[in-house]
C-alpha cells in the first residue's frame, strides 16, 4: 500500500517533469510487473512502451555492413597550403622579433638613453621617473638660480651702456 502511495507521488512528479532518472526507472519497473492497481493501470502502456522501445534495433548484419562501409571509405588527403605549412616558422620568427625588440629597448633604457653626459639623465629619463627627478632636483634648482643671478647681473651691467646709446 505504501509502495502504491509512493508510486502515485512519483507519478505526479513525473507528469510535472520533477523526477530523477532513478525515479523514472522505478516507475518503469513498477508498471512492468503484472499486478498494477486498477486506478494506475491506464498508465501502464506508456511505461511498457518505453521499455519496448529499448528493444528496437537495426536488423541483423547491420553492424558488419557499417564496419565494412567504414573500412572501405577512402582516406581523404588533407590539402595543406604553403602558407599553412610556413605558419609555425612565421610564428617563431615573430616571437623572436618581439623578444629582441624588448631586449634592445631594455638595454637602451639602462644605458641612459644613449646620452654621453650624466646631466642627460634628467633629460633622457622617462617623464614620471620620480627617483631621477628627486635626485636631480636640487642641482637643477641651483643651476636655475645661478643662471637667473648671472642674467640679472648682465642686465644691470648693460643698463649704463644702453643709457649712453640712448643719449
Amino acid at each position: 500500500m505504501d509502495c502504491e502511495k509512493d508510486i502515485e507521488k512519483i507519478l505526479e512528479r513525473y507528469w510535472s517533469c520533477a523526477t530523477t532518472l532513478e525515479e523514472e526507472e522505478a516507475l518503469r519497473r513498477f508498471f512492468r510487473q503484472r499486478d498494477v492497481p486498477p486506478r494506475l493501470e491506464k498508465y501502464r502502456p506508456w511505461f511498457v512502451e518505453a521499455s519496448l522501445w529499448k528493444e528496437v534495433e537495426p536488423g541483423g548484419g547491420f553492424a558488419q555492413r557499417v564496419e565494412e562501409a567504414a573500412a572501405s571509405r577512402p582516406v581523404r588527403a588533407l590539402r595543406v597550403t604553403f602558407r599553412q605549412r610556413m605558419m609555425p616558422l612565421l610564428r617563431a620568427v615573430a616571437v623572436v622579433a618581439v623578444l629582441l625588440a624588448a631586449g634592445v629597448a631594455a638595454q637602451y633604457s639602462l644605458d641612459g638613453g644613449g646620452s654621453p653626459s650624466g646631466s642627460g639623465a634628467l633629460a633622457g629619463s622617462v617623464p614620471g621617473d620620480t627617483q631621477v627627478v628627486r635626485r636631480e632636483k636640487p642641482s637643477a634648482l641651483v643651476n636655475i638660480c645661478e643662471g637667473s643671478g648671472q642674467a640679472q647681473g648682465q642686465v644691470r651691467d648693460s643698463i649704463p651702456a644702453v643709457k649712453g646709446i640712448a643719449e
Binding site: G59, F62, V66, A70, R73
Partner: peptide
C-alpha cells in the same frame, strides 16, 4: 538504418 550508417561513417571520417 541508412541514416544511422551515414552518420557513423561521417563521424568516423
Amino acid at each position: 538504418e541508412d541514416i544511422a550508417q551515414e552518420v557513423m561513417i561521417r563521424v568516423w571520417g
